[in-house]
Protein backbone atom coordinates (compact mmCIF):
# COMPACT_ATOMS: atom_id res chain seq x y z
CA UNK A 1 0.00 0.00 0.00
CA UNK A 2 1.48 3.35 -0.94
CA UNK A 3 0.49 6.86 0.00
CA UNK A 4 0.49 9.93 -2.20
CA UNK A 5 2.87 12.82 -1.66
CA UNK A 6 5.45 10.78 0.25
CA UNK A 7 8.95 12.05 0.84
CA UNK A 8 10.89 9.33 -1.04
CA UNK A 9 13.03 10.09 -4.08
CA UNK A 10 11.24 9.83 -7.41
CA UNK A 11 14.00 7.45 -8.62
CA UNK A 12 12.94 4.77 -6.08
CA UNK A 13 10.44 2.10 -7.07
CA UNK A 14 6.93 2.94 -5.89
CA UNK A 15 6.86 -0.07 -3.58
CA UNK A 16 10.34 0.41 -2.10
CA UNK A 17 10.15 -0.30 1.63
CA UNK A 18 6.85 -2.14 1.22
CA UNK A 19 6.97 -5.14 3.53
CA UNK A 20 4.46 -7.19 1.56
CA UNK A 21 6.35 -6.71 -1.70
CA UNK A 22 9.63 -7.42 0.04
CA UNK A 23 8.25 -10.65 1.48
CA UNK A 24 6.83 -11.67 -1.90
CA UNK A 25 10.18 -11.07 -3.58
CA UNK A 26 12.01 -12.99 -0.85
CA UNK A 27 9.65 -15.97 -1.21
CA UNK A 28 9.95 -15.91 -5.02
CA UNK A 29 13.73 -15.78 -4.72
CA UNK A 30 13.98 -18.84 -2.50
CA UNK A 31 13.75 -21.16 -5.49
CA UNK A 32 14.98 -20.39 -9.03
CA UNK A 33 12.24 -19.45 -11.42
CA UNK A 34 10.37 -22.48 -12.71
CA UNK A 35 11.89 -24.85 -10.15
CA UNK A 36 9.06 -24.95 -7.60
CA UNK A 37 7.47 -27.86 -9.46
CA UNK A 38 9.81 -28.59 -12.38
CA UNK A 39 8.54 -30.79 -15.19
CA UNK A 40 12.06 -31.86 -16.15
CA UNK A 41 15.04 -33.16 -14.24
CA UNK A 42 18.67 -33.77 -15.23
CA UNK A 43 19.28 -37.03 -17.09
CA UNK A 44 21.08 -38.61 -14.14
CA UNK A 45 17.83 -38.52 -12.13
CA UNK A 46 16.54 -41.35 -14.33
CA UNK A 47 17.21 -44.02 -11.70
CA UNK A 48 14.98 -45.89 -9.30
CA UNK A 49 17.08 -44.73 -6.37
CA UNK A 50 15.44 -41.32 -6.73
CA UNK A 51 11.88 -42.53 -6.11
CA UNK A 52 12.30 -43.16 -2.40
CA UNK A 53 12.12 -39.50 -1.43
CA UNK A 54 8.73 -38.98 -3.04
CA UNK A 55 7.60 -42.40 -1.74
CA UNK A 56 8.43 -41.19 1.75
CA UNK A 57 6.48 -38.00 1.10
CA UNK A 58 3.46 -39.88 -0.27
CA UNK A 59 3.46 -42.21 2.72
CA UNK A 60 3.67 -39.21 5.03
CA UNK A 61 0.58 -37.71 3.40
CA UNK A 62 -1.32 -40.95 4.13
CA UNK A 63 0.03 -41.01 7.69
CA UNK A 64 -1.16 -37.48 8.35
CA UNK A 65 -4.52 -38.04 6.65
CA UNK A 66 -5.31 -41.22 8.57
CA UNK A 67 -3.93 -39.64 11.73
CA UNK A 68 -6.36 -36.74 11.36
CA UNK A 69 -9.25 -39.18 10.87
CA UNK A 70 -8.23 -41.13 13.97
CA UNK A 71 -7.92 -38.00 16.09
CA UNK A 72 -11.31 -36.70 14.92
CA UNK A 73 -13.13 -39.95 15.75
CA UNK A 74 -11.13 -40.96 18.82
CA UNK A 75 -9.95 -44.21 20.38
CA UNK A 76 -13.36 -45.84 20.68
CA UNK A 77 -13.77 -45.60 16.92
CA UNK A 78 -10.72 -47.61 16.01
CA UNK A 79 -11.37 -50.10 18.78
CA UNK A 80 -15.07 -50.78 18.13
CA UNK A 81 -15.67 -49.96 14.46
CA UNK A 82 -14.58 -51.99 11.43
CA UNK A 83 -13.87 -48.83 9.45
CA UNK A 84 -12.01 -47.32 12.40
CA UNK A 85 -9.95 -50.48 12.71
CA UNK A 86 -9.17 -50.29 8.98
CA UNK A 87 -8.09 -46.63 9.17
CA UNK A 88 -5.98 -47.51 12.22
CA UNK A 89 -4.31 -50.25 10.20
CA UNK A 90 -3.77 -47.85 7.29
CA UNK A 91 -2.09 -45.49 9.72
CA UNK A 92 0.23 -48.24 10.97
CA UNK A 93 1.20 -49.58 7.56
CA UNK A 94 1.69 -46.16 6.02
CA UNK A 95 4.08 -45.45 8.92
CA UNK A 96 5.92 -48.69 8.15
CA UNK A 97 6.22 -47.68 4.49
CA UNK A 98 7.21 -44.13 5.47
CA UNK A 99 10.07 -45.27 7.68
CA UNK A 100 11.27 -47.99 5.26
CA UNK A 101 11.27 -45.61 2.28
CA UNK A 102 12.94 -42.87 4.33
CA UNK A 103 15.68 -45.26 5.43
CA UNK A 104 16.38 -46.41 1.86
CA UNK A 105 16.33 -42.72 0.83
CA UNK A 106 18.89 -42.07 3.56
CA UNK A 107 21.12 -44.93 2.34
CA UNK A 108 20.98 -43.60 -1.23
CA UNK A 109 21.76 -40.02 -0.24
CA UNK A 110 24.59 -41.10 2.05
CA UNK A 111 26.35 -43.25 -0.54
CA UNK A 112 25.98 -40.62 -3.27
CA UNK A 113 27.29 -37.95 -0.85
CA UNK A 114 24.27 -35.78 -1.50
CA UNK A 115 25.63 -32.96 0.69
CA UNK A 116 28.02 -31.97 -2.13
CA UNK A 117 27.58 -28.70 -4.00
CA UNK A 118 26.48 -26.60 -1.01
CA UNK A 119 23.71 -29.05 -0.14
CA UNK A 120 24.79 -29.50 3.48
CA UNK A 121 21.58 -28.02 4.87
CA UNK A 122 19.50 -30.29 2.65
CA UNK A 123 21.30 -33.24 4.22
CA UNK A 124 21.02 -31.81 7.71
CA UNK A 125 17.29 -31.10 7.50
CA UNK A 126 16.93 -34.69 6.35
CA UNK A 127 18.81 -35.93 9.40
CA UNK A 128 16.61 -33.83 11.68
CA UNK A 129 13.50 -35.15 9.95
CA UNK A 130 14.73 -38.70 10.49
CA UNK A 131 15.24 -38.07 14.21
CA UNK A 132 11.87 -36.33 14.56
CA UNK A 133 10.17 -39.20 12.73
CA UNK A 134 11.56 -41.69 15.21
CA UNK A 135 10.30 -39.61 18.10
CA UNK A 136 6.89 -39.32 16.45
CA UNK A 137 6.73 -43.07 15.87
CA UNK A 138 7.78 -43.88 19.44
CA UNK A 139 5.23 -41.52 20.99
CA UNK A 140 2.63 -43.07 18.70
CA UNK A 141 3.51 -46.51 19.97
CA UNK A 142 3.41 -45.38 23.58
CA UNK A 143 -0.01 -43.75 23.23
CA UNK A 144 -1.62 -47.14 22.69
CA UNK A 145 -1.78 -47.38 26.48
CA UNK A 146 -1.78 -51.17 26.42
CA UNK A 147 0.48 -53.15 28.75
CA UNK A 148 3.13 -53.60 26.05
CA UNK A 149 3.40 -49.85 25.49
CA UNK A 150 3.41 -49.20 29.23
CA UNK A 151 6.39 -51.51 29.54
CA UNK A 152 8.11 -49.86 26.61
CA UNK A 153 7.58 -46.44 28.16
CA UNK A 154 9.55 -47.58 31.23
CA UNK A 155 12.41 -48.67 28.98
CA UNK A 156 12.26 -45.34 27.12
CA UNK A 157 12.29 -43.51 30.42
CA UNK A 158 15.41 -45.38 31.51
CA UNK A 159 17.14 -44.74 28.20
CA UNK A 160 16.32 -41.04 28.19
CA UNK A 161 17.42 -40.72 31.81
CA UNK A 162 20.72 -42.35 30.87
CA UNK A 163 21.48 -39.60 28.34
CA UNK A 164 20.24 -36.81 30.56
CA UNK A 165 17.20 -35.89 28.51
CA UNK A 166 14.98 -37.52 31.12
CA UNK A 167 15.32 -34.38 33.23
CA UNK A 168 13.29 -32.54 30.57
CA UNK A 169 10.42 -34.91 30.00
CA UNK A 170 9.10 -38.27 31.16
CA UNK A 171 8.18 -40.83 28.53
CA UNK A 172 5.81 -42.41 31.06
CA UNK A 173 3.69 -39.26 31.12
CA UNK A 174 1.15 -40.62 28.68
CA UNK A 175 -1.04 -37.56 28.39
CA UNK A 176 2.00 -35.55 27.41
CA UNK A 177 3.17 -38.22 24.95
CA UNK A 178 -0.29 -38.32 23.34
CA UNK A 179 -0.20 -34.58 22.71
CA UNK A 180 3.38 -34.73 21.46
CA UNK A 181 2.39 -37.42 18.99
CA UNK A 182 -0.81 -35.78 17.77
CA UNK A 183 0.19 -32.12 17.64
CA UNK A 184 3.73 -31.10 18.58
CA UNK A 185 5.84 -33.62 16.66
CA UNK A 186 3.73 -33.62 13.45
CA UNK A 187 4.09 -29.83 13.42
CA UNK A 188 7.86 -30.11 13.84
CA UNK A 189 7.98 -32.77 11.12
CA UNK A 190 5.90 -30.64 8.77
CA UNK A 191 8.20 -27.63 9.16
CA UNK A 192 11.30 -29.77 8.65
CA UNK A 193 9.88 -31.48 5.57
CA UNK A 194 8.91 -28.14 4.00
CA UNK A 195 12.43 -26.81 4.64
CA UNK A 196 13.95 -29.98 3.22
CA UNK A 197 11.85 -29.85 0.05
CA UNK A 198 12.52 -26.14 -0.37
CA UNK A 199 16.25 -26.79 -0.24
CA UNK A 200 15.97 -29.66 -2.73
CA UNK A 201 14.17 -27.36 -5.17
CA UNK A 202 16.60 -24.53 -4.50
CA UNK A 203 19.81 -26.47 -5.03
CA UNK A 204 18.60 -29.17 -7.40
CA UNK A 205 19.41 -32.87 -7.38
CA UNK A 206 23.10 -33.58 -6.76
CA UNK A 207 24.96 -35.05 -9.76
CA UNK A 208 26.50 -38.51 -9.32
CA UNK A 209 30.07 -38.62 -8.08
CA UNK A 210 32.44 -38.02 -11.00
CA UNK A 211 29.64 -37.34 -13.47
CA UNK A 212 30.69 -35.81 -16.79
CA UNK A 213 28.68 -34.12 -19.54
CA UNK A 214 27.87 -36.84 -22.11
CA UNK A 215 29.18 -34.99 -25.16
CA UNK A 216 32.60 -36.57 -25.32
CA UNK A 217 34.31 -33.55 -23.75
CA UNK A 218 34.65 -35.25 -20.34
CA UNK A 219 33.65 -31.93 -18.81
CA UNK A 220 32.41 -32.43 -15.23
CA UNK A 221 28.71 -31.81 -14.63
CA UNK A 222 28.16 -28.45 -12.92
CA UNK A 223 28.17 -28.86 -9.16
CA UNK A 224 26.76 -25.40 -8.43
CA UNK A 225 24.63 -25.00 -5.38
CA UNK A 226 21.62 -23.65 -7.22
CA UNK A 227 19.48 -25.18 -9.93
CA UNK A 228 20.17 -23.07 -12.99
CA UNK A 229 17.89 -24.58 -15.62
CA UNK A 230 14.85 -22.39 -16.03
CA UNK A 231 11.78 -24.35 -16.98
CA UNK A 232 10.01 -22.69 -19.88
Amino acid sequence: MTTTGDHRSRTEAPDAGNWSTGLARWIAGLVPRGQWLPGRQPAYVASWIYVFGVTTLAAMVVVIGTGILLSVRGANWWHHSAIGHFVNSLHLWSVELFLAAMTVHLWGKFFMAAWRGRRGMTWFTGVLTFAASIGTAFTGYVMQNNLDSQWISTQAKDGLNAVGVGARFNAMNFSQMVLWHVSLLPLVLGVLVVLHLLLVRRHGVVPPIGATVPDGSEEPVEMSGTATEEVR
Binding site: S47, W48, I49, A100, T103, V104, G108
Partner: peptide
Protein backbone atom coordinates in the same frame (compact mmCIF):
# COMPACT_ATOMS: atom_id res chain seq x y z
CA UNK B 1 12.96 -60.12 6.98
CA UNK B 2 11.93 -56.45 6.84
CA UNK B 3 15.52 -55.25 7.02
CA UNK B 4 16.73 -57.82 4.48
CA UNK B 5 13.92 -56.76 2.12
CA UNK B 6 14.92 -53.10 2.46
CA UNK B 7 18.52 -53.95 1.56
CA UNK B 8 17.38 -55.98 -1.46
CA UNK B 9 15.10 -53.15 -2.63
CA UNK B 10 18.00 -50.70 -2.26
CA UNK B 11 20.29 -52.85 -4.39
CA UNK B 12 17.59 -53.45 -7.00
CA UNK B 13 16.94 -49.69 -7.22
CA UNK B 14 20.58 -49.22 -8.17
CA UNK B 15 20.78 -51.92 -10.82
CA UNK B 16 17.34 -52.08 -12.46
CA UNK B 17 17.26 -49.80 -15.54
CA UNK B 18 14.89 -46.85 -15.36
CA UNK B 19 12.42 -46.45 -18.25
CA UNK B 20 13.40 -43.40 -20.30
Amino acid sequence: IVIATMIIVFILALVIPFPT
